[in-house]
Design a protein around this nucleic acid. Structure first.
Lengths: 308, 308
DNA sequence: CTCACCCATGGAAGCGCTTCCACCGCAAGG
DNA sequence: CCTTGCGGTGGAAGCGCTTCCATGGGTGAG
């Protein structure tokens, strides 16, 4: 029993011959370890939690979150681990605390936490539950390199003759927004064009309103870059309502390359967000209890379509 | 210890006074049951599996599946239970078998199984793991009433003067497709219009190709109804490429009311699919180990927009 | 050839719960 | 007033693992 346990566990010290014999016997007998018993004995959780800041509706509808959840579930399923999906209301400092009290949670993936408090694992849970972020600045994180992504989009817009480029940003406390802003300032400065920034929140509705705001403040805008395809689609919608020709009068570009980006009219120029590789890396790091650098960035590639 | 266990468990027989005293003590001590220990003792699973027939890419991208997964996760999180998301390749008769071997899985939600085999819990696992379907015909299921939904859409199309209405269906072994087909036949027969049916699979790509097929076989078609907004968006795309005016020449209607239905040009007429209530009902039934009728249908309401 | 040492191994305890079973005190019936 | 029966209660076993600890066989050094 003890030897079998050691042979089956990757961390156990058993000789190679024993390990092989145990594996063979297990296969022959159709033995499968009982996750509950293992979790009980090791005092570790049997599942990882995906935590998103925001409200129910947001979580359910944002395809970005759906992609993260699905990719996490995919990794977890292959490791025989469960997943739970949680959304934490903003301004709820105790959020992660309540979650980590549950002894069944062994790891947390924090998705684009909208506040630092949402990414902070309480002291009492340190060591027992690990946290990895997707775009968090408080825990080791993986994210898309949206500085380069932004630079690519802006260079593309500049190369196609656009000079008065507005950007619909994300919440400004998000690291990805910060990186994109830096890249935007650098690119516009180099091109000698003044910055035109409007805050956004990655939703289509906000993209719509932000576009109206842009057209009011800077009527001569000739390109709009939205951090997030949903916002870009909202922008497209707003321009259509005002009879503005895309890309004739104004070019539109998004970020993320959602499946819907090809279905809009005109199809949306965007830059990829490799959500699945990023999520897979985060989940794997968590499940293997590896240590990760503070930030690992994944490249984004430009996909020019008819909207620019 | 024993008494506390009984008092805390809903099925235990403890007097009300004890139950209250135990609850008070638990609150005071901050006691939280250990799910792993409970699972070990009761030999039940600590999580529910969501099973979708198809391939990885399909699972990750289909917003319908994402909604089901998210809603399941939502219910599970509130009950302190994990979720795992699985996709089973078609033509894999042993699929559910392997899944139920895992003693950690206590229940299965089968989502629109594309083959009966995918919905069949092996004999060895009966009693230990329960299965509930969303649109399955082999296990107790919840689904949208797409017969009425289809009827409403067709009546709307007929009322707006359309007479040559084609339908892009779903896989014909799915109960929801069958119900929609019956409703379509009934409505077209009553209106004295000939049926125009093209098989689909709920994807945008297939919607695009199916539309080309429709225009080739029946050039005078004046309306296309797709079972699934994604297919409808694909149809819209195909018509745009051929310069067909929507809704001037051909009206388009979808099914599901995805968030993107409002962002297309023109916005898509569709009928709702209450995925969240349906999924919540399925998950709740599963977690409470209730028995459910073979099929419970949820109403769908028509949302007329500019595409018809 | 002997001794010390090291590593692989099996025994046994224990993780935190549920549930069987025996027990006790109570109310109702004889 | 004693017996029977029943519902509520605590003791104890056991769910299937991991891990500490003691043991034994093999190795290298003396």
């Amino acid at each position: 029993m003890a030897t079998a346990s050691r042979a089956l566990s990757p961390r156990g010290s058993a000789s190679d011959s024993t390990r092989l014999r145990v594996a063979a016997a297990a296969r022959e007998l159709g033995y499968l370890p009982n996750p509950a018993a293992r979790a009980l004995a090791t005092r570790t959780g049997t599942r990882i939690a995906v935590v998103v800041g925001g409200h129910t509706a947001h979580v359910l509808n944002d395809p970005y979150v759906a992609r993260v959840a699905a990719a996490t579930a995919s990794v977890a399923a292959s490791r025989d681990v469960g997943v739970s999906l949680h959304w934490l209301p903003l301004h709820d400092p105790g959020g992660l605390g309540r979650l980590t009290e549950n002894r069944d949670v062994g790891g947390i993936i924090v998705v684009n936490p909208t506040e630092p408090a949402l990414a902070t694992v309480p002291r009492s849970a340190r060591g027992r539950v690990a946290a990895i972020g997707i775009g968090s600045r408080d825990v080791p994180s993986f994210d898309v390199d949206n500085a380069t992504g932004t630079t690519n989009v802006l260079e593309h817009l500049l190369a196609t003759g656009r000079r008065r480029i507005a950007m619909i940003t994300g919440p400004d406390w998000l690291p990805c927004t910060r990186r994109a802003l830096t890249a935007y300032h650098r690119a516009t400065e180099a091109a000698g064009t003044p910055p035109r920034l409007v805050p956004g929140d990655f939703t289509a509705t906000r993209g719509h309103h932000a576009t109206t705001e842009i057209l009011t403040r800077w009527p001569d805008t000739d390109a709009i870059f939205a951090l997030g395809d949903l916002s870009a689609l909202g922008a497209l919608d707003a321009l259509r309502h005002r009879g503005v020709d895309v890309p004739g009068d104004i070019a539109i570009a998004g970020f993320d390359d959602l499946p819907y980006a090809t279905l809009s009219h005109p199809p949306l120029t965007t830059t990829t967000n490799p959500v699945e590789p990023i999520t897979t890396a985060a989940a794997t790091t968590l499940l293997d209890r590896q240590t990760a650098p503070p930030l690992t960035l994944y490249p984004s590639t430009l996909i020019p379509r008819a909207s620019t």
